[in-house]
Each structure stands twice: as structure tokens, then as C-alpha cells.
Amino acid sequence: MDSISTASLHAVYLLFSGDKELWNIISISFSVSLRAILFAAPLAVLIAFAMAYHRFFGRRVLIYVFNTLLSVPAVIIGLTLYIIFSRNGPLGDLKLLFTQDAMIIGQFILCMPLILIMSHTTFQSSDRRIWETARTLGATRIQAMLTVMYEIRFGLLAALIAGFGRIIAEVGCSMMIGGNILHYTRNIPTAIALETSKGDFSQGIALGIVLLVMAMVLNLSLSLLQGRGEVV
């Protein structure tokens, strides 16, 4: 019990003393995950919109594929990418293994289906009159699409937050294709796993606090944006 309280106190000290190593891990984590979200979100939301508002060949297959991808464990995606990016793999020449770019690709594959399926559900439950009203009032297809997105913004924002939550705390894929290299590919979850296995809890607790605070801030922001959350 004593060791846990000492570790917790040390964790708080590490956070507030501006420990370089700790904040470097935090910055790598956020930089990689934010870049992954930045690439994944627009694509996912656009595909989700197309699937909800347009009929095209293969639409149902696409929904099935993304639903399946949603339930693929992170470690399987990590393993697949490891094989692809390893020296003898089909994309070995790109020398992406154990780089931040590989981690971004892994996290992109992890969060894209989640954002896409959640956005698709949000689009599906949106009122078609939004699109029709926008179009009949002279909005172009792109303007009408942006109007629909604005009207269902809270649902889309929740999809983004869920996607970000999935990758910021993901360990399997980052560990396998990032390699957990200090100051380069070590992020919050891989650092927590490593320090805990070494029996050094203070850094793990400090990083855990960061993840918890982040989750609270994101959800609080969403709640504040949603207002009273009533149906109008």
C-alpha cells in the first residue's frame, strides 16, 4: 500500500515537475494519434456519408467489411503490418517498421472503421429533410453535405472522440510496429506496459492520469457542446 501511495505521489511530482522523458512520451503519443485521426476522420466521414446517402454497387459489402474491421483486435493489425513492413515483407523497402509513420498507419487502420461505422449510424438516423431542404434552397451537393454534417455534428464528434479514445490507449499495434523506442516511438500505452513490467509504477501512474484527464476533458467538452442534450 505504501509503495502504491509513494508511486502515486512520485507520479504527481513527475507530471508537475515537467519531467522531460515523461512529457516526451506524452507528446509522441498525442502527435501520432492526432495525425492518425487527421487522416482517418475526413475519409471515414466522407465514406460514411456516401454509404448513407447514395446507393452504389458494393455498398452492403463495404458496410460488412468495415463492421468486420471494427472487431479485429489491434494486435492482429499490428502483426499484419509487421509482416508487410518487415525487411522481407512486400513493403519492406519502404523501411517503415519501427517508425512513427508505421504507428500512424496502424492507428489509422484501427480508428477508421470505428469512426466510419459510428458516423454511418449517425448519418443513417439523420433526417433526410436536412439534405432535401438544403438542396431545394440552392445548396450544391457539397454545401448540402456540410449542412447535414453540421446538423448532426454531436454524433460525428462522438465518433471522432471514440476513434481517438481507441488509438490513444492502444498498446498491441503500437508495440509491434513502433518498437517502443525511447524518444521516438514510445507512446503512453507502450510506456505504461514497459514500466509496469519493470515494476516502476510511478511513470505508469503519471501516464495513466494523463489518459484519464484527457478522457474526462474530451467527454466534458462534448457534453458542454451538446448543451442540455434534449430532443427538440
Binding site: R129, I130, E132, T133, T136, L137, T147, E151
Partner: peptide
């Protein structure tokens, strides 16, 4: 311009 039976108001 088409007007719906129950008009949709933007937020």
C-alpha cells in the same frame, strides 16, 4: 422550391 409537410428548421 419544395416545402415539406413538416418543415425542417436548421439548428
Amino acid at each position: 422550391i419544395y416545402l415539406h409537410q413538416t418543415p425542417l428548421m436548421f439548428d
